[in-house]
Each structure stands twice: as C-alpha cells, then as structure tokens.
C-alpha cells in the first residue's frame, strides 16, 4: 500500500501510520459534515420535524419544501441566485485587480508614506461597519446608487477590502526578490513585472482571494439588506432572511430547502477553486 507518488528519497511510511492518519481525518471530517447533512435532511422534513429532531433520518418529508421555497417570493429563487452571482463576480474581478495592484506597491516599491499608508489601510478595517454604514449610505444615495449593485461592487474595484491587500502583501514578500529584480534588469517596466512575474507567482493568493470574495459576498447580508430596496434586486442572503420573522410565522421548511440551494454554488466554487490552489505549486517549483 505504500505506493508513494512523492520523491523516492522519502522513507516509506508504514501502513499503520497512514491508517491512523486517515482515521483521524475521517473522524474529524464527520464532525465537520454534520451541519450540512443535518441541513439537507431538515430541508426535506416537515416543520415539526426540524426542531424536534437532531438526528439525520429524513422522516415525514418530501421535496415540497423546495418547490414552495423556490416560488415563495415575488420572483423565482433563480432570480436571487443570479443577483448574488452578479454581485459576487463583480466583487471578485474588482478585488483581484485592485488589491493585487495595491499589494505590489506596498510589498515591492519604495515611496514616501509607505508605512503610514499601510497603517491607514489596516485602520480602515478596524471600525465596525455599523457606524460607517449610515454615512456611506448617504454618499451612495446622493450618487443615486441606492437600489443598484454599484455600492456593493464599486468599492471592491477601489481596494477597500484591506484584508486581501494585506494577504497579497504577505504572499509577495514570500516571493524571492531576485525573480522580479531579474525581470527589471532585463528591461521590464513595473507594470510588466507585476503582470508577468508577480501575478503568476502569487497564484495561490489570487485563488484564495477569489474563493473568499465569492463566499463572503455570497453570505454577506447587512450591506445588501441596506442597499437593495426593490425585491427584484434582492440577493439570496436577503431573500432567505425575509423568510424568517420572529414576530409571526416563519417558513422554516422552505428556508432550509433554499439554504441548501444557495449553498450549492459556494460549495462548487470551493471545490473547483481548491483544485487550483493545489496546482499553484507547479509554478513555484513542482511537487
């Protein structure tokens, strides 16, 4: 069973070690999958069953919740999926371009105020959104951008997600400087160095940014609630939350069904994305 694919120089590991490793990974994995399994099962249960039952046997259920949830609002649920996708795609493109530019400047270029700007950038993510959302709303409403996707997408093109700038800075600083200095000596400008040396080398960071931007935008709720007024503009997270109301009846069955539906795209993005994460190594020297 020690069919090692890696370098021959490595000591062959005994079957036992591999077995234990797998056992641990699987055991912890069960803990990790429980919530999704439970959600899947809840989605096909009738209301009473959701709360009284923490087990995983799908009793008393059918797929009516899906049909009901899909059509429970003004628009079929696909509308919200499309809206969320548009916002997420815009955010991804914006973050990839603007954050990698800013990160390159912070990590590699010398300029006056570098440290101060970097500190300011970090400061911008330290203030809770709840106290800046009102002034921000006022600004966007005066630009007549309320009830459009612009307030959710345009900031990403302006590198307001300092998280990703910082992430990319750390990755660029991990790339040996000789590589881009060599390119500079060969006569490449800063732009070409960024585009053809730095970007390919920081592929794991770009993939990470893509995955996170997608998932976080998809799950983000507060700013989407505030900026999207018309139900035809609602995203999945906003549409889902409108199904649950503490003061009256909540549509739990449809909520779970549609939660599962809205999780599918994020899961697929993660599945596909993490594959590129693995491939990133090929460019940095091979396995």
């Amino acid at each position: 069973m020690t069919t090692e694919t890696t370098t021959a120089a490595r000591r062959p590991r005994p079957f036992l070690v591999q077995g234990v490793k797998h056992a641990v990974v699987i055991a912890v994995g069960v803990l990790m999958t429980y919530p999704l399994a439970w959600m899947l099962v809840s989605a096909v249960r009738d209301e009473g069953g959701i709360f009284s039952n923490a087990g995983l046997l799908p009793i008393g259920g059918d797929f009516a919740n899906f049909a009901e949830g899909w059509d429970s609002s003004d628009f079929p649920f696909s509308r919200y999926l499309v809206n969320s996708s548009l916002v997420a795609l815009g955010a991804i493109v914006g973050n990839l371009v603007s954050c990698s530019m800013a990160a390159y400047a912070f990590a590699r270029l010398r300029f006056r105020g570098r440290r101060a700007f970097f500190a300011i950038m970090l400061l911008t993510i330290m203030l809770p959104i709840h106290v800046v959302i009102v002034p921000q709303y006022v600004i966007f409403s005066q630009m007549d951008w309320v009830n459009t996707f612009w307030p959710l997408v345009v900031p990403k093109f302006l590198a307001t997600d300092a998280f990703f700038v910082f992430l990319m800075v750390q990755f660029i600083r991990g790339i040996p400087r000789e590589l881009d200095e060599a390119a500079r000596i060969d006569g490449a400008g800063f732009f070409r160095t960024w585009a053809s040396i730095i970007l390919p080398l920081m592929r794991p960071a770009l993939v990470t940014t893509t995955i996170f931007t997608f998932i976080w935008t998809w799950n983000d709720f507060f700013s989407q609630l505030i900026y999207l007024a018309d139900p035809s503009m609602y995203t999945t997270s906003v549409a889902l939350r409108s199904l649950v109301d503490s003061t009256s009846a909540s549509a739990w069955g449809p909520l779970f069904a549609m939660s599962v539906v809205s999780l599918l795209p994020v899961f697929i993005v993660f599945l596909v994305g993490q594959r590129y994460l693995v491939q990133g190594i090929a460019t940095t020297g091979g396995k």
Binding site: V97, S98, M101, Q136, I139, V154, F157, L158, G189, F190
Partner: peptide
C-alpha cells in the same frame, strides 16, 4: 519607482478618499 507606486496605489487611494 515612486511614480509607479502611486499609480499602482491609485485605485486604493481613490477608494480611501471617496468611500472609506
């Protein structure tokens, strides 16, 4: 180099001034 740096930072600077 400094000029290049500010160009690369331009989107971020614009975001800082306009939005953040």
């Amino acid at each position: 180099e400094e000029r290049a740096a500010y160009l690369f930072l331009l989107p971020w600077l614009a975001g800082l001034v306009l939005i953040t």
